[in-house]
Amino acid sequence: MDVFAELLVLTLAAGTPLVYAALGELVTEKSGVLNLGVEGMMLVGAVASFAVAAKSGNPWFGVAAGIGAGAALSLVFAVLTLSLMANQVATGLALSLFGIGLSAFVGLDYVSVVIEGIQPLGIATLAGLPIVGKIVFGHNPLVYLSLLLFAAIHGFLYRTRPGLALRAIGESPQSAHAIGYPVVRIRYLAVLFGGACSGLAGAYLAVAYTPLWVEGMTAGRGWIALALVVFATWRPWRVLAGAYLFGGVTLATFQAQAGGVAVPSQLLSMLPYVATIVVLAVISRDATAIRLNAPASLGRPFHPDG
């Protein structure tokens, strides 16, 4: 049972960056905006958090910096797509390419730097309780925060008026505009929130999960997060489940490699990507479900004058 508890803790830890990034993207997409720049925002969030953590000695300052950096980068996307009507797909790709370049550039000075990362909660006595102790109290604080964020987003989207407005804008910006909702402003906020979450996902990787900085360290997690939103057919609960499922897959490949399984490590490393493709194909196959659940205006620009 202890092994089981250990695995559960590790799975949650591996799934958490996906939870942050995919939930943030979910909110952005619910407003009708498709931001393909998650990978870039995660990387910039990661490098910013690592740099600030290394300079200040406080990983929490790093987390704040990661959130800020992700949001700042998403602001560029928002200005281009929401104010200047640029193509969302092309701009999102640009954001990812830019983020990869920027993070590599900034991160050069930090490649072999060691920092004190954010440690799992030290509620020593409680975590020491048999089985339950580890499962309930043994996580990193950022893992608890991601669960809080999930609850907050779920509540916001389905229990509040602003959440309803956000979803309405994603379905039909024209109608929402007609009844007086500030479409562009709300979309700005949704994009910024998504950017902040991606930045936080990167920060988690850089100052809590690993903690170190390696060029391209997100290894496609931003893209997997995008796929997760589709898998989840735009529903927060399924995003959460999917993120932990993929956390489990990633973990399994690490464990198999560490355990010396007689399979080449490259085959194991491919597994999360192949799994993403397979699940994406299986879920997307039901075109009606995708069409019914996807925000109707997803990816389309909105200009008040038509």
Binding site: L36, V89, A219, G220, W223, I224, L226, A227, V230, P264, Q266, L267, S269, M270, Y273, V274, T276, I277, L280, A281, V282, S284, R285, A287, I290
Partner: peptide, 22 residues
């Protein structure tokens, strides 16, 4: 299967890279 080609083609970059490495 109506699967998004952006995500699939990108995932396959990683698979190809690992194949070459293998």
């Amino acid at each position: 299967f109506n699967a998004n080609e952006i995500l699939v083609s990108l995932m396959l970059v990683y698979v190809a890279t690992y194949t070459l490495s293998l």
